[in-house]
Computed example of a mutant assay.
Amino acid sequence: MLTVDFDRLGLRPGERVLDMGCGAGRHAFEMYRRGADVVAFDQDADELAGVRDLFGAMKEAGEVPDGAEADVKEGDALALPFADGEFDRVVAAEVLEHVPADIQAIAELARVLRPGGTLAVSVPRWFPEVVNWKLSHDYHDTPGGHIRIYTDAELVDKVTRAGLVLTGKDYAHGLHTPYWWIKCAVGVHDDDHPLAKAYHRLLVWEIMRQPRVLRWAGKVLDPVIGKSMVLYFRKPEVG
């Protein structure tokens, strides 16, 4: 389930790309399939071990083009262990809402992006997230959980102050918003609630089968209640 549109990001085979806060690796895997030189970065060693294993399995299965490379790196988002301008493209999907010092993390993303390169940042969208917080304290008040709710203007301001230029905005996962409203209403840890289970089966069907009716429903719901906001930026050329 991808949040970032890699065609909109401008990703091309052979480019060096960073998935900052990769988690289980969903975006890193797609960039690898597209022939990029991928670094999956996270502070969770266990998650990275699984990502590394799947990188290897993808290579063995012939799912990636010749010349594509992939590696994992453990570290801190506030002090990325990479050179200035090292990456052609950078992705930070559903990460910044977890980071207390988000301005410092954004500065690091801008630093490692080359002039002319592009950045995609996604965070939970303001309205669906506000509803979740009001319905459930447990939804956000957990170790490593969400610590802020971004407005569009706040996040754009923070990233452009780091020297990047906004090039586009999108919303994604409109079908997923009602699921989280249901979960927050019945209890975020109650996976056996009949309504939550039924909606979860719908989402699995959407992800695995991609039926036309749900693709259409997603396109209708994304701009209205899409759970994620995705912003695209470009770093100006030197001079």
Score class of each variant (00 low, 15 high):
Y150S: 06
Q43W: 07
M58H: 05
P211R: 04
E94Q: 14
V112A: 03
D53Q: 14
G21I: 05
E206W: 12
V64D: 10
V51G: 09
D170I: 01
A196H: 10
L48D: 06
E47H: 15
T3W: 02
G163M: 08
A101G: 07
P81G: 07
V4K: 03
H137M: 02
F127K: 10
T151C: 06
V99T: 11
V213Q: 02
G174R: 02
A93G: 14
L135H: 01
D46I: 13
A162R: 09
D157W: 00
V130T: 08
R8T: 12
K59D: 13
H173I: 00
L11W: 10
V220R: 06
H140Y: 09
K227R: 15
D191T: 13
T160E: 15
A217H: 02
L202S: 07
L2S: 04
F55D: 03
G75L: 12
H140W: 12
P81L: 06
A49W: 00
Y171S: 12
Y32V: 10
G10Q: 04
V224W: 09
H173D: 15
V51W: 07
R212L: 11
F82I: 02
M58W: 03
H200Y: 13
G144K: 12
Y199P: 11
A101W: 02
G117S: 03
V90R: 10
Y171M: 13
R33L: 10
P143G: 08
A110W: 03
T151V: 08
Y232M: 05
K235I: 10
A70T: 08
M208D: 15
F82Y: 04
A79I: 00
E60K: 14
F87K: 08
V224Y: 04
A196E: 15
G144L: 13
A196Q: 15
T177C: 04
G239R: 12
A105Q: 09
M1S: 11
R16F: 01
E63L: 15
T142H: 07
Q43E: 11
I106L: 15
G75Q: 11
W180D: 07
P13T: 04
K73W: 00
K219R: 15
G10Y: 03
V238G: 02
A68C: 09
A28M: 11
V90F: 05
D191K: 14
Q210G: 08
M58G: 05
D102H: 12
P65K: 11
A70P: 10
W180M: 06
D71W: 04
W126Q: 15
E154Y: 01
E74W: 00
E206G: 00
G14T: 06
Y171L: 13
C22I: 06
L214A: 03
